[in-house]
Simulated assay, not measured.
Amino acid sequence: MMMNKQKFIDKFMAAFVLLAIFKLIGIAAQLFHESFWSVVGTLAIFLVVVFIILLVITSLKAKERNERSSGKRGSSGGSFYLENALFDRIRSKYEELAEKYIAEKDYKKAARVYMNLLQDNYRGAKTLEDGGFYNEAAVVYLKKLKNKSDAAVCYEKAKQYKKAIDLYKEMEQKEKVGDLYKEINDLKNAHTYYQMVVDDYTANNQMVKASLIYRKKMEKTEEAQKILLKGWEEDKDAFNCLNNYFANIFDIKELKTEIRDLYRKTPDYRKTTYLDAMKHEFRKDPKLQEVTKNIAYEIIAEKIGTRSEIVNELKYFNPDDGVILKDISRFKTGRNKMFRN
Rank of each mutant, 00 (worst) to 15 (best):
Y122W: 07
I90G: 00
F87M: 03
R112N: 12
K72I: 11
E83P: 00
L86I: 07
A103P: 00
S79C: 03
L97D: 02
Q119M: 10
S92M: 07
L97T: 05
R112M: 10
R112K: 15
E99L: 12
L117K: 13
K93Q: 15
V113F: 08
G74E: 11
L86F: 04
F80D: 14
E104T: 04
D120V: 02
E99H: 11
Q119P: 00
V113R: 04
R73L: 14
L82A: 13
D88Q: 09
Y101K: 06
S92P: 00
Y101R: 05
A98M: 08
R112W: 03
S76D: 14
A98D: 01
A110Q: 04
K100T: 14
E104R: 14
K108C: 05
N121A: 12
N116P: 01
G74Q: 05
L82T: 02
D88K: 04
Y122K: 13
N121K: 11
R73C: 07
L118R: 08
A98T: 04
F87R: 10
N84T: 04
D120T: 04
E96K: 11
M115N: 06
K93H: 08
Y81P: 00
L97V: 08
D106R: 15
R123N: 15
S92F: 06
R91D: 10
L86T: 05
S75V: 08
G77K: 15
R123M: 14
I90N: 00
L97Q: 06
G78I: 09
A103Y: 08
Q119E: 14
S76R: 07
A110R: 07
Y101H: 10
A98W: 03
Y81K: 15
L82W: 14
D120F: 05
K108F: 09
A98S: 13
E95W: 09
K93Y: 09
A98P: 01
S92C: 02
I102P: 01
D106L: 12
A85D: 03
A85K: 09
I102L: 08
R89P: 00
Y122V: 01
R73N: 10
G78Q: 11
Y114V: 02
K105D: 11
K93I: 05
E83G: 04
V113S: 02
D106T: 07
K109N: 14
F87P: 00
K93M: 12
F87H: 03
S79N: 13
Y122P: 00
Y94W: 15
K93N: 09
Y107E: 03
M115R: 15
Y114A: 01
